[in-house]
Simulated scan of single mutants.
Amino acid sequence: MSLRAKFLVLFAVFAVVPLVAIGIFDYVYSMRALETLIATQVEEIATRSAEQIDQNFALRESELLLLSENAETQRLYQALANDDPRAWELALGSADAYLRQAWDVLSPFYSWIEFRDVHGATVYRLPPEADPGSADLRGGASFRTNVMAVVRPIHNETHGGEVGSLSAAIDLEELVPYEELAARFGETGYSTVVDRSRNMVVYHPSHAYRDQNVGALLGPDGWDIDYQVLEEERGTLVYRESDTTRVAAFVSLAEPPWTIFAAGS
């Protein structure tokens, strides 16, 4: 090997290779720094959205608690338990007047509300002409025409025993925080909400995904991520979508059983 060739080899070993290595290191470091920056920003968006959903749902819960614990409702269920037709007639008249007034205030937030006995039979319904259908909603939640139906027990204030249940169809428009979800990091950033109990997409900026199975969004034809992330309380992930690498943060709520994703790139 000539002296010139040896010099070129030594130059490559001691100059070019280290420079390439440094370049690769800087690139990897820059990408990780960028991912960290995006993760921090989208985490704030996901957290704010989750907090607003939590507040909205807590307000609905307090309203349902008021409907089940007020004196008129308690007298209605007491008359039902005593099997006294006269007492039932009087209690129903009093409860009807009170609950109709309550419905005037609550109707923008609910599709319907049902009071049921311990066997699940309807005792009273708001609005009176509503017919939620025959689907059994006890013990869980289901989506029906853009509402979330929840069931809460009604307890006797004296002995604490369960005397019936309160079923209500909450309007999703009153739970989804559209303003918070509209916030984004980057030109193509967006947020989405999925319901874990129903495996459905509650909110996505593309209407084509709304009310669809979660698999359409998270499966192989979508983000192609591990569904187990839905079991975690919060975290971040990286995925590919339309030839774009995105960083997303997510927050999961216990009630409602929703997970909020905020993604940026």
Rank of each mutant, 00 (worst) to 15 (best):
G23L: 05
G120A: 02
F109V: 02
R246Y: 12
V42A: 04
R138N: 06
L166E: 07
R75H: 14
L76V: 06
I24K: 01
L237V: 07
N56R: 04
V42Q: 05
R116D: 01
Y190P: 00
Y98S: 14
L99N: 06
L66T: 15
L34S: 12
F261P: 02
P18E: 01
R86Q: 15
D221R: 14
R125D: 01
A121N: 13
T244V: 13
L99Q: 10
S206N: 13
S111Y: 07
Q41W: 00
D221M: 09
D243S: 13
A50R: 05
E35H: 14
R144S: 10
D171M: 06
E114S: 13
S142A: 14
S167K: 08
L66I: 09
G264H: 03
G186N: 05
V193A: 03
Q228V: 06
K6N: 10
V176C: 04
Y124F: 15
G264Q: 03
L172S: 01
A249P: 10
E69M: 10
L64H: 00
E43Q: 14
V201Y: 07
F109I: 01
E43R: 14
A135Q: 09
R32C: 00
G215E: 11
N82G: 02
F185R: 06
E231R: 11
S94Q: 14
L67D: 09
H207A: 12
A50G: 08
E162Q: 15
G222A: 03
L126H: 04
L92V: 07
S2Q: 01
A168N: 04
F109K: 05
M148L: 15
A182L: 06
A95N: 04
V20I: 15
A208H: 07
D104Q: 15
I260S: 02
Y124Q: 10
P132A: 08
E187N: 13
Y124S: 05
E174L: 00
E69H: 09
R4M: 05
L217M: 04
N70A: 04
V163S: 02
Y77K: 07
P128D: 06
Y98P: 00
T122Q: 14
A95G: 03
A135R: 10
S107R: 13
